[in-house]
Amino acid sequence: MTLHDDAVLVLKAYEGSGDQAELRQVYLDHLSAHPDGMWKACGAGHLTASALVVDPSRGRVLLTLHKKLGMWLQMGGHCEPGDQTVAAAALREATEESGIPGLALTAGGPVRLDRHPIPAPCHWHLDVQYLAVAPPDAVEAISDESLDLRWFGYDEVAAVADASVVRLAEAARAAF
């Protein structure tokens, strides 16, 4: 099975409602129209995979201050040829960017979808968002893609991050 095939299966199984259901269909239509829709080279946009690192026992999430964007975001990025699944891509990105070994994605697949514009030559990131639980003794380490890493309580996220990250943190809080 290809990564593209896995993404289609993941999206078909995704049970988001309201705008999430509409967005799910946008993603599926995009993949149907663009066989290269998993890759950064797809000029019409491409799927990305991300994961919000969560410490549920302390009611907090780990955000990265993205080096290029200067924004507090969840860990995530582009799929790579070695990724077998979208979930594996999200876990790889979360592990690389947080520096935390032993992260585990929550069961049940992605918790949100988020489509956002990006500068040309590409036009859209179609982000598939997961939750990754940090082990109890987790110690983060800043990667080359980040200016900073910081834990925020669920209630603190709205003061530092955009609406997409706030919605993702709300989904994390609801999950735990």
Rank of each mutant, 00 (worst) to 15 (best):
L3N: 01
D5I: 02
A7C: 07
V10K: 03
K12Y: 12
A13M: 02
S17D: 06
D19L: 05
Q20D: 08
L23Y: 00
Q25E: 12
V26G: 03
L31I: 14
L31W: 12
L31S: 10
D36Q: 13
G37D: 02
M38D: 02
M38K: 09
K40I: 03
A41S: 14
C42K: 12
C42S: 15
A51I: 09
V53I: 13
V54I: 12
P56K: 14
G59Q: 01
L62D: 02
W72S: 09
W72I: 10
L73A: 09
Q74K: 08
G77D: 01
H78I: 01
D83V: 01
T85Y: 14
T85L: 10
V86C: 05
A89L: 01
A89P: 01
T95Y: 09
P101M: 07
A107V: 00
G109P: 04
G109W: 08
P110C: 09
R112D: 07
I118Y: 07
P119C: 11
P119M: 13
V128W: 14
Q129G: 00
Y130Q: 00
P136L: 11
P136D: 05
D137S: 05
D137E: 15
A138S: 11
A141R: 14
S143C: 11
E145L: 10
S146E: 06
L147R: 10
D148R: 09
L149Q: 06
F152W: 10
G153F: 06
G153K: 09
Y154C: 01
E156Q: 14
V157S: 04
V157H: 11
V157T: 11
V160G: 11
A163F: 03
V165W: 08
V166K: 01
A169C: 12
